[in-house]
Design a protein around this nucleic acid. Structure first.
Lengths: 208, 208
DNA sequence: GACATATATATCAGTTTGATATATTATTGC
DNA sequence: GCAATAATATATCAAACTGATATATATGTC
């Protein structure tokens, strides 16, 4: 059998917030889900059309004056049901493809100094990512405390189509999702420190 | 362009330890790399043959008495060079597909109690995984301290074909790789606690 | 008015997935 | 001793997914 068709449910979940185009789907995934999920156009457009074929969504041409034509997809009752069924079904374990770990594991035959260089590059990238996440975290935390969203957040909330009633709840979901990303990046950084220390001891041993 | 052909390098890296069959590759990936990498036969066998076609490995039929025929692949000098080139090339950021996070993020419209159930299931699975990792960690730590490997570890070391000289180094690599897995699982569990607490407060609020 | 950027859809070769089919040897239970 | 089961081993495939590119319209800016 082939891969698991999760794209379908990711899109259905986004459509359950608000009718949107394939372009909107891509943008939302990129800004909100990127550290634990990703989708690409090659998958999004065919999947949207299949959703329509399966009666899980409807397609409507939207040609607002002065704007270019776009196709807006709306979730159907059947689509909402399919989405809920997926939510309640058993959840697959996270799937990871971590090239740094692969390289590290396979390069045990190379000098420790090479492994350290490898890890330090990764460490730099993860630190940069953490800085970005920390910024978003601060923005979200402020919004949650003051009950008022900044401009950059307002754009996101507009995209999700959340009404003011459930907005706080959604903000908290965003916040917790981000917290997950931060936990993971911190774990990677903690490992980098540990590995560098361990390999450093090796280095010192072989030098003496 | 298409996906990135990392399978090639994963296999090349394993062949750099020891000549082996496609079946051996699969087994090694499953036992040693499964928490940050995976490969499947549909990918392994065609890739092995392409490695041969590209001059990065050689194929040899091995038919030991009483055993069934197998094809053993040996890395060439060109293959080793290709492997090193990949090690030194920039490393892609980790790619993750975490269905639990996807569900959590998309289900902010559902009652908090549903989200909590979702997370608790995940928590159970992660706790079970952690227990296994802790066991392997103890085995490896003991081997590193006593400089003597247990039976279950000896089998793994035989598979990797490591000579006694570089064995300790390889053991330490295994250990550090496992530590990475532990850090990640602990991060996931820490997030579960945090999320459940946060949603629990929500629950208490809506109930009063 | 040229250039860059954002919006928006569409396509596709090549890679990856998850499973299944097939065959041989080893082990275990009865 | 023999039937069922597990382990070893290769091979195959439809369907899903990737990463990029092509195309076109609208907006901002220098």
């Amino acid at each position: 059998m082939a891969a698991k068709k999760k794209t379908q449910f990711a899109i259905l979940g986004l459509l359950s917030w608000k009718p949107m185009s394939g372009y909107d789907v891509k943008k939302l995934v990129d800004v909100g889900l990127s550290h634990f999920w990703n989708e690409n156009y090659g998958q999004i457009y065919p999947t949207l059309d299949r959703l329509v074929a399966d009666g899980l969504a409807t397609k409507k041409s939207d040609h607002a004056s002065g704007k270019r034509r776009r196709f807006v997809y709306t979730i159907t009752r059947k689509g909402k049901k399919a989405f809920r069924t997926w939510i309640e079904a058993p959840t697959d374990a996270p799937i990871v493809r971590n090239e740094l770990q692969l390289k590290f594991f396979l390069s045990s035959g190379l000098p420790a100094i090479d492994s350290v260089r490898l890890i330090k590059q990764h460490q730099g990238a993860q630190r940069a990512a953490l800085a970005e996440y920390r910024h978003s975290e601060a923005v979200l935390r402020e919004a949650l405390q003051n009950d008022a969203v900044s401009d950059e957040l307002d754009e996101l909330m507009t995209m999700t189509g959340t009404d003011s009633q459930s907005r706080k709840k959604q903000l908290n979901t965003f916040y917790l999702t981000l917290r997950h990303g931060i936990h993971i990046i911190e774990a990677r950084l903690a490992w980098c420190e540990e590995a560098i220390t361990s390999l450093g001891a090796d280095l010192a041993n072989t030098e003496t």
